[in-house]
């Protein structure tokens, strides 16, 4: 039964999965409560353009994805603040624009192949030791930043106006949150793929919210659901020979469904 742990790629996949599933709900809770979940989707498409740049110039695609996502996150926030476009249209512009760019770049890199498929749908077997180091470093940055700005993030999510009156620098904190989202999204690519990243960020949080607990307790529950879904998904994928990303997201959705049902009754 433990033969699974003899494979290095599974060990690396689990390591990467645990890293990503620990930080996803930390970001997710603030995005969900601020009705800003769509930013995760947008930044995942931006990451695809980043991946394409990496493929084209033979640089580690995770690194280029991180750079593309963080840069765009700052631009999106700037564009939103200028009020030249509505908040959501800023997201739509970046989502479609980056996808268009990605298609062209990938075509130039002759990358419409297995590679692209891996990035779209995730592929834990492609996770290299080098990626684990990058992911660990970035995850530590995300966790420290969330811990440092936790109280400001909570207050702003609950009541932005009162938080501003209390002297909390709303703009700065919002920008920090969106940059952290970009980092998390870029890191999650190998695990769930670009098309399912927002699910990993949003679903465990939405599931935990069904239990109607306090803030810190909700985060802990979301962490549990996220970790459980990722570990279960990766192990089940190995035995069933199906892509882990699909199983991870369906596991999280199943937990959401069960909790919603239990709470109703």
């Amino acid at each position: 039964m433990f033969e699974i742990f003899q494979y290095d790629f599974i060990i690396r996949g689990l390591q990467a999965g645990i890293i990503v599933s620990s930080i996803a709900p930390l970001i997710g809770i603030f995005l969900v409560l601020r009705r800003y979940s769509l930013i995760a989707d947008t930044l995942s498409h931006v990451s695809l353009a980043g991946v394409a740049i990496g493929l084209l110039f033979k640089i580690n695609p995770i690194v280029t994805a991180i750079l593309a996502a963080t840069t765009s996150s700052i631009l999106i926030e700037r564009l939103r603040l200028t009020r030249k476009v509505y908040g959501e249209t800023a997201l739509a512009l970046f989502l479609s624009g980056s996808l268009a760019l990605a298609i062209i770049l990938i075509s130039l890199a002759h990358g419409f192949s297995v590679d692209l498929f891996n990035y779209l749908f995730g592929s834990i077997v492609t996770v290299r030791q080098e990626d684990i180091w990058v992911m660990s470093l970035m995850a530590i940055i995300v966790i420290i930043a969330i811990a440092l700005f936790y109280k400001e993030l909570v207050f702003l999510s609950f009541d932005e106006e009162a938080a501003q009156v209390a002297g909390i620098p709303a703009r700065l904190i919002n920008t920090i949150l969106i940059i952290l989202t970009a980092l998390t999204v870029a890191l999650a690519i190998p695990i769930v793929g670009i098309l399912l990243i927002s699910a990993l960020i949003v679903i465990p949080v939405v599931a935990a919210l069904q239990l109607k607990r306090g803030f810190s307790e909700t985060i802990l529950i979301a962490e549990g659901i996220s970790l459980f879904s990722v570990i279960t998904g990766i192990i089940a994928a190995f035995y069933l020979d199906i892509p882990a990303s699909g199983l991870i997201v369906l596991t999280a959705l199943a937990i959401f469904a069960v909790l919603t049902f239990l709470k109703r009754n």
């Binding site: 609950f158 209390a166 803030f215």
Partner: peptide, 24 residues
């Protein structure tokens, strides 16, 4: 306000301290 926001009374009242305490 968002009735579904997951905060207890204690957590909500604690927010009142946050501005006074300051960043970091």
């Amino acid at each position: 306000f968002d009735l579904n926001f997951p905060a207890t009374i204690e957590e909500t009242v604690a927010m009142g301290r946050y501005g006074r305490r300051g960043l970091f």
